[in-house]
Each structure stands twice: as structure tokens, then as C-alpha cells.
């Protein structure tokens, strides 16, 4: 086992005062806390500084650590606590953290009040909750779907992390929304001793659809129309999530105009969202001579200046 230099981890001198240690911890914790830093190695770094702080903030533990640091910290060789070593600084006042083997070898394994399994006298540590992203196709939210999920559970044992592969068949309820979380009891990290397993949380993420955008339970579809359809009005067939819908475009329609088709959005727990069709006017890729002539006639006959607002401002 390698000796951990807690002073170096926190970036303080061995004779640092308590308030400097606290300041160094807070600075590092703010930087590496996994709830504010999404980087992958942030959690490991945070654990390291939290462990260092757990020892150095407590005068009794710090004194014991300093003693061991004199004894074996500078040798560079593998570290083992002296024979017969036993910590006297107590093992019941630690925060709810997982500590390294180095820490445990000095201060012993600790169990917090709530993690103990009462009654039979056996110790039990509840396994950690696990959260995984669960990609769902829009079409799959229409009905209750059974899905097989494959995931890995990291298990810490003797300072090593191994992965357990798991497969679960889960019914995803109809009408789940993007960002929702589903809890599955007891399918997270296994508990230790007589401790219960942690839970598994599935974080629902809707897979981007080639046609539809999602806003809450409403669907948004961009509908391309020809300029003459915009001018004269039209009936166009548009796709819905399950089937097709006939949409009436009123004459003089504009690009960006939003048409609401009630109840054709995503299902909710109690009903359905709406489908919004947003019109987009598309020009033909090429215009032949005849078409150009017709456009010219239109340009000559219709008095329309789409930039009239600009000219009044100047």
C-alpha cells in the first residue's frame, strides 16, 4: 500500500493551521465536487481531498496521522501500519464517505448509525444508488414498452474496482417524458454484509427524431410548402407519430406560422399533448423559363414591399 500524503493532496504545509486546511479543502472541493464538475476524474479527485480533510480537520486523527507519517511516510517503500497499531481517535464520527484502504488501515472501517443493520448485530452497508441514461424512441412512449437494459455495476473490493454486468427487463410506462427518472428498487450496487442493495435509477432521454422536435409533451413538425401553396392555401398530408394527418393551410400563410393539431402530440399520464406544424416556404431548386415569366408577371402586378418597415425608419 502506498503512503498517502494528505498535506500534499490538499496543497498545504505539514504545519498548516486548521483554518488554512479548511480553506484548502473548500477550494479543492468546490473545484472537484462531482455535483458541480462533470469531468470523469472529478469524483476520484474529490474523494481524495475529502479523505485528506477528514483526517486533517480532526486534531486527534491528525496527530495520529502525523506520527505515522514520521514512521513510514518518507521511506518511499510500501506502507504498512506498525504492528499492533490501533487508532484511538474513534471510528464513529466520520462523514458518509467511502475511504481508501490506506485510510482504513489506519483508522479502521467505520459504519455510520444508519448504515448499521440493527437487531442481529451484523454490520451491513447499503449499496450505492446507480443512475444510468435510458434512451427512448418517441414511438416507444406511445404504449407501455418492455425493454431489456444492460448496465454495469462498479463493485469496490479490496481496493479494486470490478464491474458486474447486469441485464434487466423493465416495463417503461406509457407517456414518460424526457428527463424523467424511474426508480427500480434493489438493482443498484450490492450491499455489504446484511446491507440492502442500492437502487437503480433510469434517466429517460428521448432520442432525437428525424422529423419531430419535442417540447414537453407537444411535438413540433416543420412542414415545407411551395410559395403558391402559401399564397393560395392548400391541403397537405403530414406525418404524425402513428399515421398521417391532413392539414389545411389557409390562403396567405406565412413562413414560421404555427398550426396546432390538438391531441396529436406525445401521450401524457392522463391524455395527449398537441402537434404543432410550423410552415416553411421552400422555393423549387430550379426555375424554368415559363415559371420565371409567371413570377415576373406577379412581381409587376402585385405591389408588395416586404422591407417597407426599413424604409420608414431611414
Amino acid at each position: 500500500m502506498k503512503f498517502k500524503d494528505y498535506y500534499q493532496i490538499l496543497g498545504v504545509e505539514p504545519d498548516a493551521e486548521k483554518k488554512d486546511i479548511k480553506m484548502a479543502y473548500r477550494r479543492a472541493a468546490r473545484k472537484y465536487h462531482p455535483d458541480v464538475n462533470p469531468e470523469q476524474d472529478a469524483e476520484e479527485k474529490f474523494k481524495e481531498v475529502a479523505e485528506a480533510y477528514e483526517v486533517l480537520k480532526d486534531p486527534g486523527r491528525r496527530a495520529e496521522y502525523d506520527e505515522l507519517r514520521q514512521y513510514g511516510g518518507s521511506s518511499g517503500a510500501g506502507f504498512e501500519p506498525p504492528p499492533g497499531w490501533q487508532s484511538t481517535s474513534g471510528t464513529n464520527s466520520f462523514s458518509d464517505q467511502e475511504f481508501s484502504d490506506f485510510f482504513n488501515s489506519i483508522f479502521g472501517q467505520r459504519h455510520s448509525e444508519f448504515q448499521q443493520t440493527h437487531g442481529d448485530g451484523n454490520f451491513g452497508l447499503r449499496g450505492r444508488d446507480l443512475e444510468i441514461e435510458m434512451p427512448i424512441f418517441l414511438e416507444d412512449t406511445l404504449i407501455e414498452e418492455s425493454k431489456t437494459i444492460a448496465y454495469q455495476i462498479p463493485v469496490h473490493e479490496n481496493g479494486q474496482v470490478s464491474l458486474i454486468e447486469k441485464n434487466l427487463r423493465v416495463k417503461i410506462p406509457k407517456g414518460v417524458a424526457d428527463g424523467e427518472r424511474i426508480r427500480i428498487r434493489g438493482q443498484g450496487s450490492p450491499g455489504q454484509g446484511s446491507g440492502a442493495n442500492g437502487d437503480l435509477y433510469l434517466h429517460i432521454r428521448l432520442v432525437p427524431h428525424p422529423l419531430f422536435d419535442v417540447h414537453g409533451h407537444n411535438l413540433i413538425l416543420t412542414v415545407p410548402i411551395a410559395p403558391w401553396e402559401a399564397a393560395l392555401g392548400a391541403r397537405v398530408t403530414i406525418p404524425a407519430l402513428n399515421g398521417k394527418i391532413s392539414l389545411t393551410v389557409a390562403p396567405n400563410a406565412n413562413a414560421g406560422q404555427k398550426l396546432r393539431i390538438k391531441g396529436k402530440g406525445l401521450p401524457t399520464k392522463t391524455g395527449h399533448g398537441d402537434l404543432y406544424a410550423i410552415l416553411k416556404i421552400v422555393m423549387p431548386a430550379t426555375a424554368d423559363e415559363e415559371a420565371a415569366k409567371l413570377w415576373q408577371q406577379l412581381a409587376d402586378k402585385v405591389k408588395f414591399d416586404p422591407r417597407s418597415e426599413w424604409s420608414t425608419q431611414q
Binding site: D96, S112, E113, F114, Q115, R126, D129, L168, R169, V170, K171, P173, I182, R183, I184, R185, Q187, G198, D199
Partner: peptide, 17 residues
């Protein structure tokens, strides 16, 4: 497998110690 969308206070206290 049974899925849940709620967590009780008692459970939360146990989960988070």
C-alpha cells in the same frame, strides 16, 4: 421488475444515512 416513481422520507433517510 417493479418500477417506482416515488421515494418516501423514511427510505430517503436510509439511503442517504
Amino acid at each position: 421488475i417493479e418500477i417506482l416513481l416515488k421515494v418516501s422520507v423514511k427510505e430517503l433517510c436510509q439511503i442517504e444515512s
